[in-house]
Design a protein around this nucleic acid. Structure first.
Lengths: 257, 257
DNA sequence: GAACTTGGTTCCGGAAAATGGAACGACATT
DNA sequence: AATGTCGTTCCATTTTCCGGAACCAAGTTC
């Protein structure tokens, strides 16, 4: 196991089990000898990947990671353009918008912007959520082949939320809807009270697809306005497609991850 | 040089020189043999620290870093409480707010929230800026001893912005003002057209200090309103101090980094 | 189209670093 | 004083890393 493996394992472990870790905790969690865990953590801290809480002697995520991590996706023209367009949309309408991307069966938020309308939840960049249980994720799932969808969602992941799809058939039905309409919507699925509409856009160069979304309170936005928002997203998508070659429009292609 | 050193050097290099890098570029930039650069980059990508642009064969920051990095500072009670209070302030007043922290002679944004009033610039978490050229940074500098300030700012860093302090004496004068008033303000210094007021708060446990700021357009907010905002920040500071032991109020103590 | 340049990869033996069991130190609890 | 928890240090052994050199693939240039 290279030194890097250990360091990365620890980062992955931190991603799952919260932002703090002690030596023993990591050692048992990753099944490492205590001595190794102690040394690797110390090395990582010495290099700035982690920081040490002087009081508790526990380790925390380092500032370097914050600084570097925020550049994820920077410099990708499609992404930057989409982000700008969404910023404009938020300015005009006051709703929260963002961009996310499929990773396995999850979506990860790449960019986001809080709106001015009341919405308890904010999902800052780096947040991970169940792709099958919100519009943003399903849009990206919809770009996969049925075969691939079946593969990823067998067995079907359990999620204790009433409105979330509970079976592959259930999911495929909503995917079909998304494919038919060119956009998808969700309401009170993975996040309580949160509704959203979204569209998927792909970079024809790389084939990577991202999803642009507008999020709002499910209680305060009626069907008509949602449709209007979907329309605006579709416009943005069209303009991006015009600018970057295509965007999609054709048959399902591979999404990211 | 351990494997970790190399990996971290590369991350630091990426932090400075933009989010993309090729093998030769890194090799010459860090004065490494090409073979080493190639191998290390590949290893990092294999572990998910970096990703590879399939088209250009260049490396980019990996998603893992985004996900882990966003947890920087998570779980620190003072920070969370301050963040919540600022969110409330933004909700009530519509101004952008945030939290930042001193690191050397820079400030790094930890949390931020865009406001509803027009402000071109957004400074998402992870953004680094010159501490001496905005209120947020000077507040934290003000907590250092004069001796330490002189040490850090000799020689005095050059910054081509008209309103920014241009000498140590210049800086000390504004620091004195900040110390006297308990808050600081800046207008059109490091960021064009951006003005801000801010206060510093310290965790008495760790001694680490952070700065809470409100940012707005210098053209659209008059003196009186700025004073009102400063008052609100001071209230937040007082309530945090009450909750967490002290906050500061006493003589300069060490700030972070 | 042959010779260069530029960007990246692979090989492999010597050098250097990581590994992990064990012993140890510092606290708390019982 | 004994026991448990948490972290560190030691050091012989193993493993990995290092880096010059050779190599490959695409362009450029003459």
């Amino acid at each position: 196991m290279s030194a890097l493996s250990n360091a990365v394992s620890i980062l992955r472990w931190l991603r799952q089990h919260g932002p703090e870790a002690g030596v023993s905790e990591v050692a048992s969690g990753l099944d490492l000898p205590k001595s190794t865990a102690s040394r690797v953590l110390k090395d990582m801290a010495a290099h700035g990947l982690l920081e040490r809480d002087t009081a508790t002697a526990r380790y925390r995520v380092g500032m370097l990671l914050l600084e570097v991590g925020r550049h994820y996706g920077a410099g990708q023209p499609l992404l930057e353009a989409a982000d700008e367009a969404l910023a404009e949309l938020t300015r005009r309408t006051g709703y929260a918008t963002g961009i996310s991307l499929l990773n396995g069966i999850d979506v990860v938020v790449l960019r986001s912007r809080a709106g001015t309308h009341p919405l308890r939840v904010v999902t800052p960049p780096g947040t991970r959520g169940p792709a099958w249980a919100n519009s943003t994720g399903r849009n990206l799932i919809a770009r996969l082949s049925d075969r691939e969808i079946a593969r990823r969602f067998t067995p079907f992941p359990r999620l204790e939320r009433p409105n979330a799809p509970q079976s592959l058939a259930d999911l495929m039905q909503r995917v079909a809807r998304a494919r038919a309409r060119g956009y998808d919507e969700s309401d009170d699925e993975s996040l309580e009270g949160v509704a959203a509409v979204s569209v998927a856009v792909a970079d024809p160069q790389t084939g990577d697809a991202v999803s642009l979304y507008v999020a709002f309170s499910g209680l305060h936005v009626d069907r008509q306005r949602r449709r209007a928002l979907a329309g605006m997203l579709l416009e943005i998508k069209a303009s991006l497609a015009a600018r970057f070659g295509d965007g999609e429009a054709d048959a399902p292609r591979r999404a990211h991850g």
